[in-house]
Design a protein around this nucleic acid. Structure first.
Lengths: 312, 312
DNA sequence: ATAATAGTGTCTTTCAGACAGTATAGT
DNA sequence: ACTATACTGTCTGAAAGACACTATTAT
């Protein structure tokens, strides 16, 4: 190894500059640079009452959308989000933007994907770091923050359907965002494109009505990740209130996964992630056996390990 | 609903501008903007010969690194990558940068994570979209592309170790990048931080020797994702040559997962993803039963479905 | 009694883990 | 014969799926 007569910090570059000199001279505006934003896919699950007084309310998955007040896509609905300031981290930007539109504080955040297609915004090159946010519907959000921004929740419905294509098969995905007043919709197509021996999943936007930019794709991606992680982790509990019945929990899983689950098996699966709250759900005129309330056990992984150790 | 006298495109905003007028006036430089780069974690698996003539060569996981010729971190090793041009997509930038340093063409790419901490680069705010790239070692790469950039492969070794902390437990991760001439190393810590009821995994850099920026974290993240996906998908085949023996395939899985696998079970697991190549591995003085060659079957998912249908 | 939800027990099927056993080459 | 890799068969136990059965409440 070469013997250094400089300390690391003083090592000069090919122009003879030390690091301190180099940084002083560095021109951050030498190249044209893209805009960077964060967008949030904020999900929550709410109950919709049902006519039959004995039946349980139906759970619906909702996503938060914001009405665009300016070009481009003026009047259409977009994901909440905004530009990342130079002196803030992504998650700080997410929290700040969310505060401007809602009063949400401490929420679950997870980075989803970064969208950078050249033409995705007609104004200029805009790169969007998207985040999945999950909130508990009982901590009711007051929409409309400091700005006079129009924001509301839409019920999410997504259906998939195989479509036969000349070059291999594809899946057609229909996304509907439903509200008392309007229905937004989008059709996407997921195809398996093969480059040489490498096959890659490609999601393309076929049509979009009322949903701005490529935000339908971002919602689809967010829901897909939520589905994948629902069975592998405990993130679903971020959608639950402090205490809940196991049936309520099951309905939340079902609305995320888009399919019914068998009660006995579901309870076996989640049993080690919850603890009995030792209370019964207070219901007026339930007309059926009262249900136990449970809480999420944040230490379930450790507890499970100890339980299995004790068994052997 | 309000009746519109304008078509959507002609709808004026609050300043009375149509979309065309708005876009013409739009000043893309109004706000200060960050730099955006792509960085690639390029893995391959190579064989290291062994003294005993009968024993099989040992597989090693390698990652491609580039020597920094300028400040900051001059003389240290960094992931290959570079600035994203305004008129190119991320993957185009990745392919372009990879061409400048190697002669690699058609390779597997998958977006990993976007790193945006304010202080991660001393020059200015730099946001990095990281990509996982897998290449087959037999398609031998010639290092050093158009530029006179010094690039080479380092063997990756990562060990994890529990460390007890006052606030909950943490995992200490030691990363070593090994080469004939030098050893780079880094220590990281993965902790479970709890904010309210939300618990979040946090990876922090404890120390880094010879590895520039936060690139040790990016390598760790890339290897973690590779491990997770190795068992769930077929991406490992992107590390394999056209034809291979099942033992070779198993060794590649083992070096990724960092643990030995039982042969019989492994073969059961991968059997439906490969097809017999109807050849035997040409070996000089093997001293053991010759092994069959297999190829990856890109249609294994469809074939598996049909096979299960036929059974019922 | 009825209809609704709440909750448990258990059979079956599937799949991962462990391991014993056989096959085939070169020295 | 020995030793190395190559490959198969099968036992076992854990987990997932399916479903029957019991419990409790208001009307």
């Amino acid at each position: 190894m070469m013997k250094l007569s400089y300390s690391k910090k003083e090592l000069p570059n090919s122009a003879g500059l030390t690091e301190a000199q180099f940084l002083k001279k560095y021109d951050a505006t030498a190249y044209e640079r893209p805009s960077v934003t964060v967008d949030m896919v904020v999900f929550c699950v709410v109950e919709e009452p049902v006519k039959n007084y004995r039946k349980l309310p139906v759970k619906k998955l909702r996503v938060l959308m914001v009405k665009r007040g300016d070009h481009p896509y003026i009047g259409q609905w977009a994901l909440p989000g905004g530009f990342v300031h130079l002196n803030e981290n992504f998650e700080e930007a997410v929290v700040r933007e969310l505060k401007e539109e809602t009063n949400v504080g401490n929420i679950y955040l997870d980075q989803l994907y970064t969208w950078g297609e050249v033409d995705r915004d007609p104004r200029t090159r805009v790169i969007t770091v998207s985040y999945l946010a999950l909130i508990d519907a009982s901590s009711q959000i007051i929409l409309g923050g400091s700005d006079a921004i129009e924001a509301k929740w839409f019920t999410v419905e997504m259906t998939e359907e195989k479509s036969v294509k000349p070059h291999g098969n594809a899946i057609r995905i229909a996304l509907k965002l439903i509200d008392d007043l309007e229905v937004l919709s989008s059709v996407m197509e997921k195809s398996n494109n093969v480059f040489g021996k490498i096959s890659k999943e490609l999601l393309t936007l076929v049509s979009s009505s009322g949903i701005a930019f490529d935000h339908a794709k971002i919602i689809q991606y967010g829901l897909e990740k939520l589905r994948e992680n629902a069975l592998r982790s405990d993130i679903v509990f971020n959608l639950m209130p402090e205490s809940f019945t196991l049936t309520e929990l099951q309905r939340v899983y079902e609305v995320i996964l888009g399919q019914p689950l068998l009660m006995a098996n579901f309870r076996r699966k989640v049993s080690h992630m919850v603890t009995l709250a030792d209370e019964v759900k207070p219901e007026k005129s339930a007309g059926h056996r009262p249900s136990q309330l449970y809480r999420f056990n944040p230490n379930w992984k450790r507890d499970k390990l100890e339980f299995e150790k004790a068994k052997n």
